[in-house]
Computed example of a mutant assay.
Amino acid sequence: MKNKSLQDSIQDRRTYYQLSNESPVSDEEIQKIIEYVAYWAPSPFNSQSARMVLLLGENHKKLWELTKAELKKISHSEEAWKKTEEKVNGSFLAGYGTVLFFEDMSVVKGLQGNMPSYSEKFAQWSEHSTAINQILVWMALENEGFGASLQHYNPLIDEGIQKEWGISQDWKLVAQMPFGTPLAEPGEKTHEPLEKRVLVFM
């Protein structure tokens, strides 16, 4: 991974919707990024419930063709479908790969059973766990020269993904992160005043 300051990595992480299917690094390096995050990302009670699936090449394309097929079923008109298809083709399918983020609900249920006093909190903490993995992967991909975005086509595509890649029924799909070499700059980012969002007491 490139030697960036943490502040730069946070600032540079943006949403890119125009991608190419080129990669600035090898597939092995991409795999190392995913594995590094999976290994080191924190989780409640060190439960390590986060799961990730890296799709490259034809598997990446299959995902977005599957997604388009499901979206077409629920499109209200041919015009609406064409807009949807253009978005998926240009912003997601056109990329180099996709990371699928899951939570292993068997781990979450095990924690609920072992620690009933926290039972109602574990589902919420599971969301925290996957969010941490998502942002770390996003920043790490950005550091290598990729652009990415975070998508949520679940539960529409859950069944198709489970069948296509033999994913366990215990794995709950949370998000999809298509990535590739960016073809355009991200949109302008606006900021609410910090004094409305951060309180400091000294």
Rank of each mutant, 00 (worst) to 15 (best):
I132H: 09
A148D: 02
S149H: 05
A140F: 12
F146C: 03
E159I: 00
G145K: 04
M139K: 14
E164G: 05
I132N: 12
N154F: 05
W138C: 08
I157M: 11
H152S: 04
A175H: 12
V174P: 15
D158Y: 02
N154W: 04
G147V: 01
L173Y: 05
N154Y: 02
V137C: 14
Q162C: 02
W171G: 07
G166C: 14
K172T: 01
S149F: 01
D158F: 00
I157T: 06
T130Y: 09
G147H: 03
K163N: 08
G180R: 03
W138M: 14
K172Y: 06
L156A: 02
H128G: 14
E127H: 06
W138L: 10
S168R: 10
P178V: 09
G166N: 14
G145R: 10
I157L: 05
L156N: 06
A131L: 09
E127I: 09
Q162E: 07
V174S: 13
F179K: 05
A148N: 05
Q162F: 06
L136P: 14
H128Q: 15
E164R: 01
I167G: 13
F179E: 06
Q162A: 06
Q162I: 02
E159C: 02
T130V: 14
Q162S: 07
G160N: 03
A148S: 02
D170Y: 02
Q151R: 09
W171A: 09
Q151F: 06
P178E: 10
D158E: 10
M139H: 14
D170S: 04
D158N: 05
W171D: 11
L141V: 00
A148E: 01
G166Y: 12
H152Y: 10
T130K: 12
Q134Y: 08
L173R: 08
E127Y: 14
E144C: 11
W165G: 02
N133R: 07
Q151Y: 07
D170I: 03
Y153C: 01
I132A: 15
W165F: 06
P178H: 10
M139W: 11
P155G: 07
W165Y: 04
W171K: 05
E159Q: 11
Q169G: 14
M177P: 01
G147M: 01
Y153W: 09
V174H: 09
N154L: 07
G180Y: 09
F146S: 00
H128A: 12
